[in-house]
């Protein structure tokens, strides 16, 4: 409860900061929207026309892609500080201030800066899903929608857990480490049907960095039902395991925190 009210406070303050730099905000909205539209254009270019993916219609591919934008958008709202964690917090010593507050340190890192404009992608994703829904031969009832809502939150949590673990790496290696960009690029693979990849990528995306759980499996359950039932059922388990792991790794990192010289 206290954390919820703090979250409100944080977002309010952050909104004020963003208001101070309005141009920055609008540029950010524009670039994010543009990036997503380009991504969508790529789907049209590659899979549109007469080059279908075996076993998947073009409408289904768009449905998968549209859905993948939802958990990603939620994650992007809170991801800013994770990307700049090593630089902004550890090297500059801003993490001291975080530790001095009687609030969970990870909570502060995740919610100190909220990039609300990231939700624009979610709107776009929903729009794509709704436009192709009539061309897909599946019922979208209350049960399905409820499942998708839960799955979106699980997916966002999964992304957060993975990137928290990557950010934590910087507690041990003071140098800026470039592990995040390659993993970030891996997310894109989870947007397309998993069966177009070879075995190695499938295992990687399912069980090592489980981005397929965040986006492909839940959407595929809606489209294919039974075939992906097991994976969809495992989604909450995978989410809980990765979140638990992330928290443990984070705690270990904080124990290893060395602060700066002065």
């Amino acid at each position: 409860m206290r954390y919820l009210s703090l979250l409100g406070q944080y977002s309010l303050q952050y909104a004020k900061v963003r208001m101070e730099h309005r141009a920055d905000f609008f540029i950010s909205v524009a670039t994010m929207t543009l990036a997503t539209v380009f991504g969508l254009a790529v789907v049209f270019l590659i899979f549109g026309g007469n080059r279908p993916v075996p076993g998947w219609t073009f409408a289904e591919l768009l449905f998968l892609y549209g859905y993948s934008l939802l958990p990603m958008a939620l994650f992007n709202v809170i991801s800013v500080n994770l990307y700049q964690f090593a630089d902004g917090y550890l090297i500059q010593g801003k993490f001291d201030r975080v530790l001095l507050r009687p609030v969970n340190s990870l909570f502060q890192i995740l919610f100190e800066q909220l990039r609300v404009e990231a939700l624009g992608d979610a709107v776009l994703g929903l729009f794509v899903m709704m436009s192709v829904a009539p061309r897909i031969d599946v019922p979208l009832g209350a049960a399905q929608i409820l499942f998708l809502i839960v799955a979106v939150f699980c997916g966002a949590l999964l992304y957060t857990a993975i990137f928290v673990m990557l950010a934590t790496v910087s507690f041990w290696f003071e140098d800026k480490v470039g592990v995040m960009p390659p993993v970030y690029n891996l997310i894109a693979f989870g947007r397309y049907p998993l069966d177009i990849y070879n075995g190695f990528l499938r295992v990687l995306l399912s069980w090592i960095v489980p981005f397929a759980f965040a986006s492909f499996y839940p959407a595929a359950l809606i489209l294919r039902g039974d075939r992906y039932l097991l994976h969809a059922a495992l989604l909450p388990v995978v989410t809980i395991v990765f979140c638990g792991l992330a928290l443990r790794v984070w705690e270990q990192g904080v124990r290893n925190y060395g602060s700066t010289g002065s």
Partner: peptide, 28 residues
Amino acid sequence: GVVFGQRTQLWWDIPVVESFRLLQNIYD
């Protein structure tokens, strides 16, 4: 309470009073 002379504990970009309001909430 902690004061570091070399580094501020306040939020850099927002007016002082907003920092105080945040702290009021954080410390109830």
